[in-house]
């Protein structure tokens, strides 16, 4: 993170990472949970449970990563890439019957 704590660059940096680490992290966790719930080869209720438990570990991991990434752009790129990946998996698997 930038050394100068007053400049607008620092503020934008923090704001971007904060958004990635909150809304972004939640979105990744939610889509991860949805994708896992649809792809686990067990019953639809059985699959919901590990998906939910693990989603709660994914969220803080993404939050922390959003602040550790080399730059705010990388943090956002990572969040978008993960969300797109999990979103695509969930979308193409479809709702089990």
């Amino acid at each position: 993170m930038a050394q100068d704590r007053r400049g607008w660059r620092y503020r934008v940096n923090i704001a971007a990472r904060t958004l990635a680490g909150t809304i972004g992290a939640y979105a990744v966790a939610a889509l991860f949970g949805a994708a896992l719930a649809r792809t686990l080869p067990i019953g639809r209720l059985d699959a919901v449970i590990p998906a939910t438990l693990l989603a709660f570990l994914v969220a803080p991991a993404v939050t922390i990563w959003a602040f550790l990434a080399r730059g705010p752009w990388l943090a956002w790129a990572g969040v978008i890439a993960l969300a797109a990946l999990f979103g695509a998996i969930a979308w193409f698997t479809g709702q089990p019957i």
């Binding site: 949970g33 949805a34 896992l36 649809r38 209720l45 919901v48 939910t52 989603a55 709660f56 709702q95």
Partner: peptide, 19 residues
């Protein structure tokens, strides 16, 4: 504690499989 409120705070795995 987080898990006890999951159906409210993280309903997406449920939505994915149950709509």
């Amino acid at each position: 504690g987080l898990v006890t409120l999951a159906s409210l705070s993280m309903p997406w795995p449920i939505t994915a499989n149950y709509g």
